[in-house]
Design a binder for these strands. Structure first.
Lengths: 212, 212
DNA sequence: GGACTTACTGACCGTATGGTCAATAAGCAG
DNA sequence: CTGCTTATTGACCATACGGTCAGTAAGTCC
């Protein structure tokens, strides 16, 4: 009951390496909730529990704060999937199954990730950096994983040979997972199509469609 | 060279039924380009070639204009697909093929539609009307069409029986088309995955995955 | 032509918000 | 304790933008 973690701390001085991520976290929330134009610097400050002026001590402008916020999210999003991919030994269909399951699980779990995705869709046109970031750090890595699985399946004789190098197939394979996330953004978790149904139907279609 | 269609018309008076759609068109452009918060009423007026005050003669507020703009888009988006569905006689796989082709063709063609979709993703959280509109007028109708095709295929013995009523399958079937549109929003037409490749891979996967 | 309705204009207002800055005090070195 | 650095504040601009309104003139009916 003494040191409330979000009480109006009376001028607690922090070193930049502690204050900066705090501001970035607050900024991500605010930008995600209101979009770039709708976000207010005063609200970011309030979320971070500091005065507005302090933000400008760390970032020269709203735009700079926005860019920094996005770049701070470059953390490896696909670590788990890539680890699975590297360490897998059994049949490719099992690998595919567990990767798809990971994908749909994240949709429900990782709020941060959906927020970032929405921000990218919303602001990509005005901030080319965002589009580049999505293309290189998210789409390219995701399709890379998908393609690796497809090739592994072909190599093992489980999938028909054509799928190893069909252009666009990797994108098509993962599109339903991404749309599940988009639907959830639009409709909310109560109204959006149930992730479990999507996952099962998706997996069923994939296994039938890819098998030799 | 006399009556330039977008010259600063010197106080040309128009009946409301002519002025209203002009304002709505301008508003759709502005909202699509800047989002709700970023859109400026003065810019809408300028796009429509009128004074800002006139907008308030027709719409009481920015929010009302936004709602009206969206509702004006409720035109039957799926007319073409529904006509195809009703009038089709041959094999279900051909119907499926031609519907998928229509879907990918629209992605390239109908800018208006992509704009609306983006606006929905962007603003659905703040305007529940938008989410409802998307759910009832777009998603429900699209999945309805998909489900009808699946059932027709099962009835004709072309598709395996399970696909007639698998929950979530209709959504999974059309997800790649929608994602193609989203990718195009984010990456632009030069950087986004080629619609033709996506279409071919998508169709290949579907026919293999659904067939009996 | 005169009277009347109403589409239309543009100057104006209040407020919200991005950004500035001089003053303040927290932490630290001596 | 004294003095220094700099993180932190909050009052303060300048401006942009949503919204208002008194006035103007385009079209129409007689």
């Amino acid at each position: 009951m003494n040191a409330g973690s979000d009480a109006p701390q009376a001028r607690r001085r922090l070193p930049p390496e502690a204050r900066t991520p705090q501001i970035l976290r607050a900024a991500l929330e605010e930008f995600a909730e209101r979009g770039y134009a709708g976000a207010r610097m005063a609200a970011v400050a309030s979320r971070a529990g500091i005065a507005k002026g302090l933000i400008y001590h760390y970032f020269p402008s709203k735009e700079a704060l926005f860019q920094a916020t996005v770049h701070a999210c470059t953390r490896p999003v696909f670590e788990e999937a890539e680890r699975q991919l590297a360490g897998h030994a059994g049949p490719a269909r099992d690998l595919l199954g567990s990767l798809v399951r990971i994908g749909y699980a994240r949709i429900g779990a990782d709020r941060q990730e959906r927020i970032l995705f929405r921000l990218i869709i919303t602001e990509a046109e005005r901030f080319p950096d965002l589009a580049r970031f999505y293309r290189d750090e998210m789409l390219a890595r995701a399709t890379g994983i998908a393609r690796a699985v497809l090739r592994a399946g072909v190599a093992a004789g489980e999938f028909r040979p054509e799928v190893a190098d069909m252009p666009g197939l990797a994108e098509v394979v993962l599109a339903p997972v991404l749309m599940a996330s988009v639907w959830r953004m639009i409709l909310g978790e109560t109204e959006a199509p149930a992730p479990e149904s999507l996952r099962d139907a998706h997996l069923d279609l994939l296994l039938r469609g890819l098998s030799a």
